[in-house]
């Protein structure tokens, strides 16, 4: 099944293979079907708010066929180990009153719309919240337990479970209303050229996606596959860790994981993927 789908994808797009070398937007392999039955949208018309893009593509379309294949079957996806660990945490009592995630939520499946709509405005707290912030709100305010570290293994795994539960959902991030100010802050950060190399997110992921920078094939920098199992790190990596790595690589002082700047940047970058499917935990190199 996996091989046949890969082959079908090649056949379907074979006609644009040559043109694809000149036109970066044409993709070689756009058929991501997980476990043989879960269809993932890996290419979509760009959201109206994107001024310089006509099409958006999942990071999966930029990877080698070997890396792509690892995400097509959950038994080959090492990120699923984190999901399984979080599955166990989901029913583990954490607070003094013996409550767990499962006390309020029937199961991870009941959270299937979360990843596709976060970060989002939280009326009660008057701020934009990421999935991690929402999880900690539940842990501290509903269960009365100590918060998890924003970038702790259990938090990344739980974020992985929530992505997994929402796989295939179409990303639909609200950017207007009360979230607009934070979204604009994130957009400004996206186009700011930081560090001694004076590189913005856009320099690589908008102006140069599909180009190689030394051995790295630049993607569009989508967040739809996060948390992502990175082969070079051999673990699930959070959105904010990835932001930190990119900004560090511009020889800049990074922002902190969980900082207001990274929350804003996450809101903006996630909204660039509106129209694509949630596909975390993805596998990337």
């Amino acid at each position: 099944m996996t091989k046949r789908t890969l082959f079908a994808g090649l056949l379907a797009t074979g006609g644009v293979l040559v043109a694809g070398l000149a036109q970066a937007q044409d993709i070689i392999n756009d058929e991501l079907v997980i476990n043989g039955d879960l269809n993932i949208v890996t290419q979509a018309p760009a959201a109206d708010h994107l001024d310089y893009m006509s099409v958006v593509r999942s990071g999966w379309t930029f990877r080698s066929t070997e890396t792509q294949a690892m995400q097509m079957d959950d038994f080959d996806n090492p990120g699923m180990l984190g999901v399984e660990s979080a599955m166990s945490d989901f029913t583990t009592a954490m607070g003094a009153d013996g409550e767990s995630c499962a006390s309020c939520h029937d199961g991870p499946e009941s959270l299937s719309n979360v990843r596709a709509t976060y970060p989002q405005w939280d009326e009660e707290h008057g701020e934009v919240q990421t999935v991690e912030m929402q999880v900690n709100e539940c842990i501290t305010e509903r269960m009365g337990a100590e918060p998890w570290g924003y970038n702790s293994t259990e938090m990344i795994n739980m974020s992985g479970l929530i992505s997994w539960a929402g796989r295939g959902e179409i990303v639909d991030i609200a950017i207007d209303g009360p979230a607009q100010e934070t979204w604009q802050m994130g957009k400004d950060l996206y186009y700011t050229r930081t560090g001694q190399l004076e590189l913005s997110c856009a320099n690589c992921h908008e102006d140069n996606y599909d180009n190689y920078i030394r051995a790295d094939h630049l993607s569009m920098g989508m967040l739809t596959g996060f948390p992502t199992y990175r082969l070079k790190d051999a673990r699930l990596v959070s959105v904010h860790s990835r932001f930190r790595g990119c900004i560090r690589d511009t020889r800049a002082e990074t922002y902190a994981v969980g900082s207001p700047e990274f929350v804003a940047l996450e809101l903006y970058v996630m909204s660039r993927g509106n129209g694509l499917s949630v596909e975390g935990p993805a596998v990337r190199n």
């Binding site: 930081t194 560090g195 001694q196 004076e198 900004i247 560090r248 020889r251 800049a252 002082e253 990074t254």
Partner: peptide, 15 residues
């Protein structure tokens, strides 16, 4: 420079 948020090489820390 001047640079925006100059860092100490590839450490991610401030210059």
């Amino acid at each position: 420079g001047p640079y925006i948020r100059p860092g100490d090489a590839f450490t991610g820390k401030a210059a």
